[in-house]
């Protein structure tokens, strides 16, 4: 077991697995967070809940420089990566980002991460000190955690950058694609926004969450980015995945290829998805969707 880890996490869902992994592998676990509901570390350094990561990063970096942990484990996303970058520079190492699995040893850690747009998995090794940004699902929640003191982490205004304001993004329903047993995925091959009500009806019948490809989210704007599956989006493992109008590009498929059964509807029997699915219906989506809905009813 290594000596000391510092966990940086604000999101409660991300915190449980990160803290469980830290407690299972390190003698002493420190937590830096702005979320007062989080616990599970030997020492918690709590900063102002209203502060952004940019405002907190000088104090968190000073804490890391003073504590010299063997490992810094950060939550996924912009805030985790900002802290990881500064932590790595402070400790004289390179961060390993979006690790999908991590194994710890006495000397250091090995982490797997996707590279080349999901086309390959790189296994990276770091001696202590190590800095890791954990992708969702990298660690399992559960297992013993610790209880300990809570310190207030005082923030000093960061030099050179001043917060002008924070705007909450449009209030979208928070989706948890990782928890869904059935997921319907929408790609550009759906053709038009007019077909979305049919998709929603079908997903309702299946008890499924709706996800999408990056182009469907970022170029067509059919759904928000929180529903985007694939490299740099969600990586999901549902029991049933139904791909609608998704050709089967690796950047998307890497996010769903852990699904138990993959169904697909596509207009072309030459599409790469045919080789990557269990059941593929070849046909025009607009014509077959109403029939699938009828038959499912």
């Amino acid at each position: 077991m290594a000596n000391k880890a510092l966990v940086f996490v604000n999101d409660a869902d991300a915190a449980a697995p990160l803290l469980a992994a830290a407690c299972a592998n390190f003698d002493r676990v420190l937590l830096a967070t702005n979320n007062p509901s989080l616990s599970g570390a030997d020492e918690t350094y709590l900063y102002d809940a209203g502060a952004t990561a940019v405002q907190a990063v000088p104090a968190v970096t000073s804490l890391i420089a003073a504590q010299r942990p063997d490992a810094v484990l950060c939550e996924a996303g912009a805030d985790g990566k900002l802290v990881a970058g500064y932590a790595a520079a402070a400790l004289g190492t390179s961060p390993i980002c979006d690790a999908t699995s991590v194994s710890f040893s006495a000397e250091g850690l090995e982490a797997a991460r996707m590279v080349y747009g999901g086309g390959a998995v790189a296994l990276e090794r770091s001696a202590w000190p190590a800095v890791v940004v954990a992708a969702p699902g990298a660690f399992e929640a559960g297992g013993a955690v610790r209880t300990g003191e809570v310190h207030t982490l005082e923030l000093s205004a960061p030099a050179g950058v001043r917060l002008l304001g924070v705007e909450e993004a449009a209030p979208e329903k928070k989706v948890n694609l990782n928890a869904a047993k059935c997921v319907v995925g929408v790609g550009r091959g759906l053709g038009s926004e007019e077909n979305l009500p049919l998709v929603e009806e079908l997903a309702g019948l299946m008890g499924a969450e709706i996800g999408c490809t990056r182009p469907a989210a970022e170029e067509e704007h059919w759904y928000g980015k929180e529903r985007y599956i694939g490299v740099s989006g969600c990586m999901i493992k549902p029991a049933v995945y139904l791909a609608l109008g998704i050709s089967g590009q690796v950047q998307h498929m890497v996010g769903v290829n852990q699904a138990k059964t993959i169904f697909a509807v596509d207009k072309s029997d030459k599409a790469p998805i045919v080789e990557q699915a269990d059941h593929v219906l070849i046909g025009d989506i607009k014509a077959v969707l109403p029939r699938i809905i009828e038959l499912l009813k």
Binding site: G92, T93, S94, I96, E110, V115, G118, G119, A120, V121, A122, L123, E124, R125, S126, A127, V254, N257, Q258, I262, D269, V274, E275, Q276, A277, D278, H279, V280, L281, I282, G283, D284, A287, V288, R291, I292, L295
Partner: peptide, 27 residues
């Protein structure tokens, strides 16, 4: 400080690859 031990294409899950036509039977 970080060494790449290996870079490998992911293992592909075996899939049934059953193809259905969009006639009544296939549907």
């Amino acid at each position: 400080a970080v060494e790449t031990v290996s870079t490998l294409a992911p293992e592909k899950a075996e899939r049934l690859k059953k193809v259905y036509a969009s006639d009544e039977d296939g549907l």
